[in-house]
Design a protein around this nucleic acid. Sequence first.
DNA 1: TATTGTTATACTCTATAACTATA
DNA 2: TATAGTTATAGAGTATAACAATA
Lengths: 161, 161
Amino acid sequence: MKSIHHASPSARASGPDKAVERLFELAVLLADGMERGLAERGLSRARAELLWRLGQQGPMTQRDLSRALACTPRNVTGLVDALEAGGLVARHSHPSDRRATLVTLTERGAAATAQMQADYGDLAMALFGDLDPTDVARFIGDVDRIVKRLRGEVVPTAEPG
Amino acid sequence: MKSIHHASPSARASGPDKAVERLFELAVLLADGMERGLAERGLSRARAELLWRLGQQGPMTQRDLSRALACTPRNVTGLVDALEAGGLVARHSHPSDRRATLVTLTERGAAATAQMQADYGDLAMALFGDLDPTDVARFIGDVDRIVKRLRGEVVPTAEPG
DNA sequence: TATTGTTATACTCTATAACTATA
DNA sequence: TATAGTTATAGAGTATAACAATA
């Protein structure tokens, strides 16, 4: 379990500095929390994401998975190996291309993705379920603005201390 | 460069679902962007964090570093080995405890942490510098509320698709 | 006895390169 | 000739366990 951010927020940071500090803190909490939850079910972030993709988009070739996950085909081989050994996915021959392998969710794999989906909804309600929809919408707008800027801006090499 | 979240936001998600979706998107962007920026300078997240700690808190034993970074002493050995090979930190004998090793920043290491600090400030201004301080303060409050809930809540095993 | 840092070993994620089987 | 997936190899980050030197 790693953490990007440990120290308590500086008392005298400027508004923008404080805001970025909190954002990093939030990012770390989300990532660590997710990883911890996944680990309790024997899943890593990388394996869970592959599973999730199959759940969202249905059976795929490993090549498609490597594109969806933005990693190398070799990497997919390893992830599928592990998930297959755990009984969460299965390899099938592709009906029209004998080079390709179709990866599908097993029953256990489908159950795992359903559980992930449910947990995701639970988190959403725990964080925002009691808020006025107007406030939620405003907050979404705020985050959207930041996301858009990040997609166009240089991102820091630093972390809050 | 990994990504937790790839697909476009679902069009029909509820407000809370959308909000969490955006938060994960933001977390991924921050993490990936930071890692990319660090990589341009030959640093990884783990090594950068060790450097950052030394910059914030001054010379430390490896044992202290393992506590600060929440990792094993063995892990610290590897990180310090790498940073030492890169000329960013140096090992010194501890003045009063001959078992311990004091790790210090070299000049190059200090320059690297200064650069990280500067980049961090640049990001803060790029994201929030043009906003009304009142809006920034409100946003900080929103994120604070989420952070507090995350510290007390179960965090999901799922990721947005 | 307890602590500091190391060696030894192992697992996960990731990458490149070379190779096989197919297209 | 190009593509899908594999083996081979490598490096980073992480962990546990055993060990040496020191406290």
